[in-house]
Nucleic acid binder design. Sequence first.
DNA 1: CATTTGACATCTT
DNA 2: TAAGATGCCAAAT
Length: 119
Amino acid sequence: MVSRDSEGTHNRIFAVVRRIPRGRVLTYGDVAALAGMPEHARLVGYALHALPEHSSVPWHRVINHKGGISTGRAWPGGELVQRALLEAEGLEFDANGRTSLKRYRWAPDRDDAPGPHSG
DNA sequence: CATTTGACATCTT
DNA sequence: TAAGATGCCAAAT
């Protein structure tokens, strides 16, 4: 029973992000789709922006479609923080600061298995 | 209440 | 692959 749309919407997003396992990442569009609001990736990023620091939501596992970090001016230095957190989970970044979405993109169907040749 | 800005994605060139 | 333009909803001013 949600009287507020924003709260319900944001809540949905957080719920999806929390489902992201460790060592995996999702794009804003994917999170939005799983949250029930496809093509509305902006709302996902916006929700994460409103995410409090005491939140147990692995926001750092959400990246843009280019496989990079788009904190932008909204978070000076955030690119370094998110990248550090992802690296701590075992992810690899390209010289351009991009990851392999083909390799780290998480799917609701796939529990884990980073790759057919990764083990 | 209206205008501007914003953790993005997608199409076109 | 990279750069420019557009659409969407919500928050801030």
